[in-house]
Design a protein around this nucleic acid. Sequence first.
DNA 1: TGACACCGATGTGTGCAGACATCAAAACTC
DNA 2: GAGTTTTGATGTCTGCACACATCGGTGTCA
Lengths: 261, 261
Amino acid sequence: MSPPAASSLAAGPVPTRLNGMTSSLHHRAIENLGTRIIAGELPAGHVMLAEQLEDELKVSRSVIREAVRVLQSLGLVETTKRVGIRVLPPSRWNPFDPQVIRWRLASDARGAQLRSLAELRAAVEPAAAELAAQNAPAPLRLELVDVAYAMRDAGLNGEVPRFLDLDIQFHSLLLSGSGNEMFANLMGQVAETLTGRTVHGLMPDHPNEAALQWHVDVAEAIARGDAAAAREGSDRILRRTMARMADTWTEQPRVFIPVRR
Amino acid sequence: MSPPAASSLAAGPVPTRLNGMTSSLHHRAIENLGTRIIAGELPAGHVMLAEQLEDELKVSRSVIREAVRVLQSLGLVETTKRVGIRVLPPSRWNPFDPQVIRWRLASDARGAQLRSLAELRAAVEPAAAELAAQNAPAPLRLELVDVAYAMRDAGLNGEVPRFLDLDIQFHSLLLSGSGNEMFANLMGQVAETLTGRTVHGLMPDHPNEAALQWHVDVAEAIARGDAAAAREGSDRILRRTMARMADTWTEQPRVFIPVRR
DNA sequence: TGACACCGATGTGTGCAGACATCAAAACTC
DNA sequence: GAGTTTTGATGTCTGCACACATCGGTGTCA
């Protein structure tokens, strides 16, 4: 009785795994709806019925209900009795949620999302460098210096994969060393953007020599506790990065979220 | 049949409403578990069983399951078959989620949370000011100037509640004007910290005159599109704010989240 | 006759209870 | 120690009862 002839969520006959993530029905329902909402396929104000979703996704009520609850906590939908499940406008979405970010990166708004992340990173990393210079534990400072030098060598030798690895590690250590868990949490997003940049061929085989040296400078400033120098160096790196990436998101429309009063 | 004699989640016999938020069983279960996990009452690694939670909270399986699913999406717990529901360490929590922030503000880590938010704000607002000077729509610029002057007047006259309102409005407009939805999303948290600061008597009756003028300067710099001046002015305001709040979180332990490799 | 307040019908989410399916940890066998 | 079986928890499905927001009909009053 249980298995329907065709299931729109069942990609394979066997519940497969992807990227180590659980591929439960619940998870797939979230993915399906989240993707479609953020892509604009299900526009703000659109009302769905739980029963209709069960039907459409060929899953039971419990799966739909659990998925809707999660989407609700992300600000993607709201539920009202006698009405149904209403899609909320983008201004209600939680822009910091990793899933929302991932879905936006997979949508037409990819450029805008990359810009938002880059701007956030450009704002945060210099502050993190300053804090790291003041607070980071000694072993982390030493590791940061090591990584910076290794990164410079890899960059000069054109070892692209190794360079990317070290680059991600450098910026992760920096954010982690700030001792601010919100800053540290941006590691994941930073890694994703750096990786994406390389994969999309936006990185030259031999990174700019000056930029490589700036990384070393930042690491050493943090190591000796020079907060101002760490901040300045980090700011220099990120202004250059922003300048080089700016044309990626040229003319992406900006969204101004109204102030709620 | 349905209503048990005593329900540990049922504050009132009738499903009441609080702050306009739905007070469904589901919501109360999330609140109960989220609070206890973040307070450390349910430590990382602690394993619970769904059945045990049904029993403890006196609710049905579906309520527990939906709550657990939401907590899972926040990174507070993970579920494993044959094991149960395991509480995750703080490094796995999503530090940007509004609920997580609220629970942390209500816990012993309140000081650390306030510091994190303040540092984030100090990093973001100058960047937002810079972006607002470049991108904000004209009406928003005009409103910002109006609010800045009104805020200065209210501050000079010692109209504390009005000043707080305008202060929140000023910083909200600034963040909104950046055209970065992540920055704009910080409005809520900023409002909370500003309100909390006033409520806790950390604000003098008459705000510093220079600081009031700095707000006007920032608004006018944004109005005329002077990005550098907007950034510097905003940076000045926030450095002063940070300096004045620093002793609030003296000696709050910093947490260094390890870099995952 | 028209406008308005009341009130019951209706439909939808919410919550409950029980069953079976699935799968990984743990125990067991060789 | 490797492979197999057992076991016990979550995952999924289903039927039912209830709460309650919305809608539309009915009655009252001007």
